[in-house]
Amino acid sequence: MHQEVKIVRGENTLECILSCEIDHHHAKTLRERVDHALFADKPRVLILDFSAVPFMDSSGIAFVLGRASSARTLGAELHLRGLGRENRRLLALSEIEKQPNITIE
């Protein structure tokens, strides 16, 4: 199975470069891998990079909202990077910009 998430550790950041379709099938593995690294590292900023995500449905929305919630329990920010036009439109449906600890690049 190809690698679905590459994790890059910085001084205060944890960057997760996602590279699979984010649907219900893949979401559980992604969630477990990102949360595992997040709670182990306790960074100040969790960065999710979507540049190599070819497709996302509402499981992607749940994934983002869930990671925002995980980050909040650690007092961390969630930064979203590399969102394409389609994925931005999808996330806009959930009014993600209203989440207190999410920033979108």
Partner: peptide
């Protein structure tokens, strides 16, 4: 039990 957001029908409609 699963992490779902209840947005499925809204996505279909949008």
């Amino acid at each position: 039990s699963d992490e779902r957001c209840g947005m499925g029908f809204l996505v279909m409609e949008s």
